[in-house]
Design a protein around this nucleic acid. Structure first.
Lengths: 165, 165
DNA sequence: CGCTAATATTTGCATTTGCAAATAACCTGC
DNA sequence: GCAGGTTATTTGCAAATGCAAATATTAGCG
């Protein structure tokens, strides 16, 4: 498993890595979040592939399962998927009868997306896997630690929310 | 900023969200990591766009700056970029003279990638932005909290490492 | 040594992606 | 009740992506 431990001091005895620009990647938060996220994502994607659901599809199912019927833009916010990408993803899910698309009552510009019966079944079959997976990711964490991690991730997210959109 | 607060109890007075599958997205770790990661990524991408460097390119620069010259597969591990995608990404970076590509001495199958002079300058110009950005993400965190977050993200990553590859 | 299995990288190919422009439906002030 | 500006979604289009197959090279074994 790769070395890359602390390093990145101001140089010292050991030869600096040739092109010595010097950057402490291993301690860089965006790096740590990204690699954990990618790991989580690719591994879970493999887990649900046999169910013929992609990761992005699962994200849509999960968001609809959690928050109920909603508009496309709400779903985009909840899934972190670009709205144009999501529009087409939902197309495919509608075609496969996982999601029902209707026009919003109040505002006819907006779309109203909901789980179909089949989509609900798919969600219910994946949710236990998701929970199991989360427990795996949090192996060795006690409840307080797990909650602390969640809270800190929310804070990071909100800190970034305060930036120029 | 969307509502979506705690909710997801076992139901109670308020009407369950129509298609009541029931899933606590807001407390689901993979969701929290993904949305923080996506936020971090898209916002930083915008930040460096004026420098004519994409996020993936920055990841390559950062990995080379941190760990020095290395092989393509090492870089893939460090950046969490798929190796075939990375192969082509590096192509472009070589074409733009950000990265130098040579064949490894010991093993002529392997490639040896290093920052070019220009790539080093690009890295050095972005690193301060990256640090500034990390500080923004961690606004309100004291040093111990920030380090606790990093440590927990490493643990999550390692927990997943133990899974079937 | 010669041959088969493993490793490192590249390439073929079909999808997915995301920005920007187009479209559609509201909403506001007059 | 309508011009002009916003908001919600879709679509055009040029990349970027990732899986699987091809290539190139090394390693191991008899």
């Amino acid at each position: 498993m790769s070395a890359a431990s602390g390093s990145a001091r101001k140089r010292r005895g050991a030869a600096p890595p040739d092109t010595g620009v010097g950057f402490d990647l291993a301690g860089f938060l965006p790096y740590l979040i990204n690699r954990a996220g990618v790991r989580l994502a690719t591994a879970f994607a493999r887990e649900i592939a046999p169910l013929d659901v992609t990761l992005q599809e699962w994200r849509v199912l999960a968001a609809l399962a959690a928050d109920g019927p909603q508009r496309l833009s709400d779903l985009a916010g909840l899934t972190s998927i670009d709205i144009s990408t999501l529009s087409r993803l939902v197309d495919r899910m509608v075609a496969r009868d996982l999601v029902a698309r209707g026009r919003s009552d109040g505002d006819r510009r907006a779309v109203r997306l909901a789980l179909s019966a089949k989509g609900g079944r798919a969600a219910r079959s994946i949710i236990p896997l998701a929970h199991h997976y989360e427990r795996t990711a949090l192996a060795g964490f006690d409840a307080a630690e797990a909650e602390a991690l969640r809270a800190m991730l929310r804070r990071v997210y909100m800190n970034l929310d305060a930036l120029p959109r």
